[in-house]
Design a protein around this nucleic acid. Sequence first.
DNA 1: CGCAGGGTTGACTAAGTTCAACAGTGGTGG
DNA 2: CCACCACTGTTGAACTTAGTCAACCCTGCG
Lengths: 230, 230
Amino acid sequence: MGTLVGRGHCLTCPIRPQSLFGCLEHDELSLIEDFQTRVVTYDAGEVVYSEGERLNLIYTLRQGFVKLTRFNSEGEAQIVRIVKPGDLFGYEKLVVDSNYRHTAEALGHVELCQLSVERLKELREQSSAINQAIIERALQQVMKTEEHLTHVSLLKSKARVAWFVLDWVAEQDSAPMPLSRRELGQYLGLTVETVSRHFAELKRLNQISEKQGVLSVLDRDALEELSGVL
Amino acid sequence: MGTLVGRGHCLTCPIRPQSLFGCLEHDELSLIEDFQTRVVTYDAGEVVYSEGERLNLIYTLRQGFVKLTRFNSEGEAQIVRIVKPGDLFGYEKLVVDSNYRHTAEALGHVELCQLSVERLKELREQSSAINQAIIERALQQVMKTEEHLTHVSLLKSKARVAWFVLDWVAEQDSAPMPLSRRELGQYLGLTVETVSRHFAELKRLNQISEKQGVLSVLDRDALEELSGVL
DNA sequence: CGCAGGGTTGACTAAGTTCAACAGTGGTGG
DNA sequence: CCACCACTGTTGAACTTAGTCAACCCTGCG
């Protein structure tokens, strides 16, 4: 699973600025001079790692999207995070003796970069900027997850959908939508049918549109009103 | 607000083993030799800090419980975390230029210890164990919050209540219960009434009991069955 | 062509919220 | 010391929301 594309060279990596190593100043760049990584690709639906796996690899997403899922005892899935380009994932490996706590699955074709946990730990000894960057990313993640929790817990289904759309396109007016209705449901804590109905209604009211896997916001004000974000 | 009790001396602090500095080995203990803190107390309902505040203090809880709450635009509250003795909170301050992202409120009488963000950052420069400990705590927190999200998202109300009870008493058979029904609802994403009904039923079936603010598990198997945790 | 999988829609149902009434409890002031 | 009030918790009944079940469409693929 996963096709090796080649070796990554962090120093010249096009997405370094968005990556964990984007925190390094000029004088520290030499630290990653020979920090080599493996660049691998996966196709839609392929699993990058599964809960409990022992391999010691942390990933940076270069292209595409990855979903991180947890399953309860009845086999129902909760998508806890959707990884975007530049994001780090699998970093629960930084906790001593821990294994992956999610299943990571490619949404469409993805390209990612494998970092060895051991090498990253060595690097942490040498650069406090790296430590700070890891702490910041972890804390950002806490915040994101708390927001997700708050929305799932407090918002009605229609508001959740509206919030998701706004959050997904962020500052843009449109963005690719690699999630199926089922996956949206698993992310928002709703059934396929409920998600489908709300999307249908938003389209009927000309507040959003979907064409060839691209989601567009047509009436941002209306969506903000609905989501109750103000 | 908050009463200064005195200065804390980390080296001799009774709860150091559970605290952030519990990670330090013998040879590093000298680092905190003169790391002084302020020990303060708050009474039930007093606010330790509010969302957006600028003070640069991180806290370790010594005694009692603290709830961390977020409010949506309609003023509805979501309790995102209940802090227990030995836990660190307010550490979003470790992200540069960030303010508190919750309201922290004492549940009953609490005693806590204020650490200066600046001094903690200095300490991080000197000890990689501290860095590792902070990263581990942040990642543990991500995991805890994801679990919370999963439960709120996937479990039925009765199962959420059962899960909460088990999670709260942990390995014990009973534990103090400082949360009101309303607060339980705000933690679990339910209304007061729903929580009350389920507690009433669990008591009726002799699966739990409540006496003078102490919650006891009488039939662990039944609760596990209900919560679907297996 | 026929079938599988994702998406949509409608009718019905179950779960939880909302509204309302009331009980218990602790604190305050006359 | 007791009456009153505010607040939390409990319970019932009506109502709303989202889930369930089922039918159907559409697309892509063997």
